[in-house]
């Protein structure tokens, strides 16, 4: 059971101060040109006010869009390899939504299920998440259909839920307790607010366990072809997704030196699975769209005992051709196999 406290709105300034004094940078949703994105802040006033979600996910804090894996120098007959060390600064993610906080678990599953990925781990280790419950949702949201919720604690070290004059603060983990200890006087005893009453109402759109159970049987369904006909095969959905983890490794080099970079990639790209021979195991867009759905809703559960989707709806909002994941999943769930 979490330790529940009250945190006044004013006390956030002191909390931010305490975090920064502890040598941590604070990343929070900020507004710029009408867009909400993560940015470094010093004070609560810089945090965006009435935002629903950031466009991009917070995954880039632990899994940046481009990162160095190694570098080397080449001299005749010799190569000198240099290991890369991730620049993992102590970071507090403030105000991310519960869906995104939860998503770090799905990333962790892939990065560490077998071989351990030191780059992701070094960044995650230095990361503390202060989540913020949602008090509103939009048509793209479907967290409650995938086992989450607008005030879900999974993935947050501290979860704040806005109440009348401040926040209900649930201190959930050791990392959360460490933050509490930085400014314990700010955390007042809790008053037993019913956070569910405050949180947004997100109605479940489809029966996810039933969908997951039936996916293996509907691999060849026309529904994937129909849905994906308007998909243009870009990577917007994957790149804004907080759980999409597929990546590319790219070499950039001169004759004398070079480096190996990890870059985000997407299963929606035609090139993703293309063999050097020209053979492509997922030749058409419908196969790639299906892979995206299956990976998240069938393969993940089979492999990692969790979903590869948190229902944040970012993909839907980012999609240039309005591929609405919630709607398409609902449709798929309704298909009679």
């Amino acid at each position: 059971m979490a330790n529940t406290y009250q945190l006044s709105r004013e006390s956030l300034t002191s909390l931010f101060g305490a975090l920064r004094k502890d040598g941590r940078r604070i990343l929070a949703p900020v507004e710029s040109d009408g867009r909400i994105g993560l940015g470094e802040v010093e004070a609560p006033a810089q945090v965006a006010g009435d935002y629903l979600q950031t466009i991009m996910s917070a995954k880039e804090v632990a899994f940046p869009k481009v990162e160095r894996l190694l570098s080397y120098t080449i001299t005749p007959g010799q190569v000198d390899l240099k290991d890369a060390e991730p620049k993992a600064a102590p970071t507090v993610l403030f105000g991310v939504r519960p869906c995104e906080a939860k998503a770090f678990g799905a990333l962790d599953a892939v990065f560490n299920w077998d071989y351990r990925d030191k780059f992701f781990n070094a960044r995650l280790e230095k990361l503390a998440v202060i989540g913020l419950s949602c008090t509103k949702a939009d048509e793209a949201c479907f967290c409650t259909s995938v086992g989450g919720g607008p005030a879900d604690t999974a993935g947050s070290d501290i979860l704040l839920t806005p109440v009348a004059d401040g926040y209900l603060a649930e201190v959930l983990t050791e990392k959360g307790t460490a933050i509490l200890n930085l400014a314990s006087d700010l955390f007042k005893p809790g008053n037993g607010v019913d956070k569910v009453a405050v949180a947004a109402k997100v109605e479940a759109a489809f029966d996810q366990p039933a969908l997951t159970a039936k996916l293996p049987g509907m691999f060849d369904s026309e529904v994937w072809v129909d849905q994906s006909l308007r998909c243009i095969g870009c990577g917007a959905c994957a790149f804004v997704c907080p759980t999409c983890v597929c990546f590319d490794i790219q070499e950039e080099a001169d004759p004398k030196q070079g480096e190996r970079l990890r870059c985000w990639d997407s299963c929606g790209f035609h090139m993703f699975t293309l063999h050097a021979s020209g053979h492509n195991p997922r030749e058409v867009q419908s196969a790639r769209w299906r892979q995206r759905i299956y990976h998240k809703f069938s393969y993940y559960p089979q492999r990692y005992d969790q979903l590869g989707c948190v229902g944040c709806g970012k993909c839907t909002r980012a999609c240039p051709v309005d591929m609405n994941l919630k709607e398409h999943l609902t449709e798929a769930a309704g298909v009679t196999a």
């Binding site: 983890v245 597929c246 990546f247 490794i249 050097a276």
Partner: peptide, 11 residues
Amino acid sequence: RMKCGVGKCGR
């Protein structure tokens, strides 16, 4: 096709 060889890159 593979990039990582260690069960992560997804290809």
